[in-house]
């Protein structure tokens, strides 16, 4: 880890924590958001910890497993960390689906929180 840039350590630490919590007990994800955090979930917007947790805890599956294919992290001009994740998930007995998720992490009062979160399943209107 010593040679990994700081923002990458923060980003990968967050990603590991986020999906582990999501897959085991997603109620605990509340710790990662603030009252001004924004989530866009499949194109629908939610603002604030309460609204975000209301959405995440009401998603219609019992079990879910995420697997990360690739993750990228950047420092931003405002000292945040931008993270993009591409992966696959399996919800209940549904088929495996690809997904994309982007986070913006910001250090507020010595704690890294997620101020922005966007999620999409990788579903295209394949022509052929």
């Amino acid at each position: 880890m010593a040679d990994t840039p700081m923002w990458e350590q923060i980003g990968t630490g967050f990603v590991q924590h986020y999906y582990q919590q999501f897959d085991t007990d997603r109620v605990k994800l509340a710790d990662l958001y603030t009252d001004t955090s924004c989530l866009t979930w499949e194109g629908v917007g939610f603002q604030g910890k309460n609204a975000i947790m209301g959405k995440l805890t009401s998603l219609p599956f019992q079990t879910i497993q995420h697997s990360i294919t690739a993750q990228d992290h950047h420092p931003t001009p405002d000292s945040c960390v931008m993270t993009m994740v591409m992966g696959q998930l399996k919800a209940d007995q549904d088929q495996v689906m690809g997904f994309q998720q982007v986070f913006l992490l910001k250090n507020i009062d010595n704690k890294w929180v997620c101020t922005n979160d966007m999620f999409r399943l990788s579903l295209h209107n394949f022509g052929a």
């Binding site: 001009p77 945040c80 931008m82 101020t115 295209h124």
Partner: peptide, 14 residues
Amino acid sequence: QPTPDSCILSMVVG
């Protein structure tokens, strides 16, 4: 989305 530092975060799937 707007960010806390008045930036815009954009995500594209295509």
